[in-house]
């Protein structure tokens, strides 16, 4: 077994080329659990936490790029003004210990249907930057995550940054679990009222094989909102909630039934809109 500890992206790509089946290690909060329980016996690991190109965040024209090694704790502390719903989502992940370790690159790369940062990221049309043997490419997150814990990451590629467009308007993140801390979401939802584009943006987590965009619901409510408020009639908000629930493709598992998840998504949708509108 080998553990590579690169300090630059070039070293990391070189290490991955030398050990093509290596597992990429970020915060370890998912990977080490699988190793501890004997579900995974890695032969090679490329540990990414030192790679300089993957650190921090940068403001660019119209968006912010988040380094893949940005932790939930850093998101909570540094990005609450740019992306309040992302900071809120980060704050619901695990415990302080987990938020100090887990990273945005790990959340995207693991692609769990319950990844808490993913609903807001897909709602904002975030993109993923990858570096690999053939150079770099940028993919829409909505296309990058192809199924439960499945992505379009190609052999030899490393997620370097996540590009998140900056959008003016209220943002909400709501999550249902059995307590406030240490829960994997049973259902979660991110909502953005994009005031410049006059568009409702919504992302759903834990109610489908991957983060979902309820586009029919978005289109409906975008046309119903009086954007000069913003205001909307209660009936329109109720209909939006129904359309969100209809967009869900949940499963029944130990955390909740499909019926509960669908119902919960509708409740979260209504609540998020009500919190975003001018009353």
């Amino acid at each position: 077994m080998t553990v590579a500890r690169p300090r630059t992206l070039a070293e990391a790509l070189g290490a991955l080329e030398a050990t093509p089946d290596a597992h990429l290690l970020a915060g370890g909060t998912d990977f080490m659990v699988e190793v501890n329980f004997g579900h995974r016996r890695p032969t090679d690991i490329v540990a990414l936490r030192r790679v300089v190109e993957l650190q921090g965040h940068e403001h660019a024209d119209g968006h912010v790029t988040l380094g893949a090694m940005l932790t939930y704790a850093e998101i909570e502390a540094d990005l609450a003004e740019d992306f309040p719903a992302l900071a809120a989502a980060g704050r619901t992940v695990g415990s302080p210990q987990i938020r100090n370790a887990g990273t945005i690159g790990g959340n995207v790369g693991t692609a769990s249907p319950a990844g808490d940062t993913l609903p807001l990221l897909v709602a904002l049309d975030a993109e993923v930057d990858l570096a690999g043997p053939e150079g770099t490419r940028t993919v829409a997150l909505d296309e990058f995550i192809t199924g439960p814990k499945r992505t379009d990451r190609r052999p030899g590629e490393i997620i370097t940054r996540v590009r998140v467009p900056r959008v003016t308007g209220p943002q909400q993140f709501l999550k249902i679990g059995t307590r406030n801390a240490m829960v994997i979401s049973i259902a979660c939802l991110a909502l953005v009222l994009d005031l410049d584009a006059r568009r409702v943006r919504c992302g759903l987590g834990s109610v489908g094989p991957r983060p979902l965009r309820p586009r029919a619901a978005e289109d409906f409510l975008s046309g119903e909102i009086d954007w000069d408020g913003p205001r909307a009639a209660p009936g329109a908000v109720r209909r939006f909630a129904e359309l969100v629930a209809e967009a869900c493709t949940p499963i029944t598992d130990q955390r909740g039934t499909a019926e509960y998840r669908r119902h919960a998504a509708g409740v979260l949708a209504r609540r998020a809109v009500e919190r975003s509108l001018q009353s």
């Binding site: 553990v3 500890r5 290690l25 915060g27 370890g28 909060t29 080490m32 659990v33 190793v35 501890n36 329980f37 690991i45 540990a47 936490r49 695990g94 415990s95 302080p96 210990q97 987990i98 100090n100 370790a101 240490m182």
Partner: peptide, 27 residues
């Protein structure tokens, strides 16, 4: 728990509070 749920293995790594069960020692 060995899965970052219980906090009983909490330590500091470079001054940052983490669950040591979720840290690869060789890293």
């Amino acid at each position: 728990c060995e899965q970052g749920e219980c906090g009983s293995c909490s330590v500091f790594v470079d001054g940052v509070l983490v669950c040591s069960c979720c840290v690869l020692a060789a890293d």
